[in-house]
């Protein structure tokens, strides 16, 4: 017979998703924020992104080839996602060699030492970023001004979070965020890391990923809600009233890496919990730790640390938080 019979146990259908297609969707979701960043900061952004992506891909390729062996995994596009996210966490003034160091740390230490995609306990891009932040604090916190026409510098060169934090010591919360221009924050016209500034573009990317069922709502929503509630509680119990009650939470959601972290970094498959309940616990943890660092810690921004800390808790969450089993609730 001219037929060859193929035999395998059921199921015989597979949905069109693959690791590669999921990663491709994440990349697509990141593009609007990249575009806004390039508009705000100029073409340097694209150069940095290109360097970050290239070095991540090359590092992964080489490590796989030289140390791990077996099938090349570069084609699953995860190295590109890591590169993009790493670039998004860098200021535009960063020298090129620091980017390469970041890529080596992110992919080499953060991912491949554990055996590659799927086995790393910590988000590789964040491992890279935090390493750079500690190793090169000056270069990592020197933010250039947006170069786009019509930008008015209200924050004197520092990121909104840093300037608010520097004021927070001796002023009330209302005074501290008094100079914040929320419209500028939505469009990305503020100093900051390349990818974290454009709130609207990040939200668009998040909605795209939700629509494509790449992520679920649980992690981003629980992080952002926790942050907002936390901020509200701090202001409210601090005795302040008036517009600051909602402006302060809104500020914390829009400023710094909150949206980038909540939508793109914390939702990293490998390092986030497996169940919806677990995801919400994880999100609350990230939100709370971020706010604690932002308000009382040494750094103005705490998203990266919060996510890394909760990454470490993820295996524990997976162990103890089980999905809702069928048939447990309504036994007769």
């Amino acid at each position: 017979m001219a037929n060859k019979f193929i035999a395998a146990p059921a199921p015989h259908m597979h949905n069109p998703h693959s690791t590669q297609s999921l990663m491709r969707d994440v990349i697509i979701a990141l593009l609007p924020a990249l575009a806004v960043s390039a508009w705000v900061y100029g073409l340097d952004v694209l150069k940095i992104t290109a360097i970050a992506i290239t070095s991540c891909v090359v590092v992964e390729f080489l490590i796989q080839k030289l140390f791990i062996g077996g099938r090349q995994t570069v084609s699953n596009l995860s190295a590109i996602v890591t590169g993009l996210l790493l670039a998004f966490n860098l200021p535009t003034t960063i020298p090129w060699w620091i980017i390469v160091v970041g890529a080596v740390i992110a992919i080499g230490v953060g991912k491949m030492t554990y055996g590659g995609l799927g086995k790393n306990p910590f988000n590789p891009a964040l491992v890279g970023r935090v390493f750079l932040l500690i190793a090169y604090p000056v270069q990592m916190t020197t933010f250039s001004q947006p170069t786009v026409a019509g930008y008015v510098d209200a924050m004197s060169g520092a990121t909104p979070l840093a300037s608010v934090k520097s004021l927070a010591g001796d002023a009330s919360f209302a005074e501290a965020i008094g100079g914040v221009d929320f419209t500028n924050m939505l469009y990305g016209m503020m100093p900051g890391s390349m990818g974290e500034i454009a709130a609207l573009a990040l939200i668009v990317g998040g909605l795209y990923m939700l629509w494509r069922k790449v992520i679920t709502w649980h992690i981003p929503v629980s992080i952002l809600c926790t942050m907002a509630l936390f901020a509200f509680a701090v202001v409210f119990f601090g005795g302040e009233r008036g517009a600051v009650l909602y402006e302060f939470p809104a500020f914390h959601i829009l400023a710094g890496g909150a949206l980038l972290g909540a939508i793109f970094m914390a939702t990293d498959y490998v390092t986030s919990p497996m169940t919806h309940k677990g995801m919400i616990i994880y999100g609350i943890g990230i939100g709370a730790i971020t706010m604690i660092i932002r308000l009382w810690g040494a750094y103005p921004e705490g998203m990266s640390f919060a996510i890394l800390i909760m990454n470490g808790v993820t295996p524990l969450i997976n162990k103890y938080v089980k999905p809702r089993r069928f048939g447990k609730t309504s036994a007769k």
Partner: peptide, 24 residues
């Protein structure tokens, strides 16, 4: 007629979400 190519688990949790019996 063939299965799709096999990759490493990336812990995307889609199987947990899909399981109608609430298993992992």
């Amino acid at each position: 007629a063939h299965r799709v190519a096999v990759d490493d688990c990336i812990k995307c949790a889609k199987c947990v979400e899909a399981c109608p019996m609430g298993l992992e």
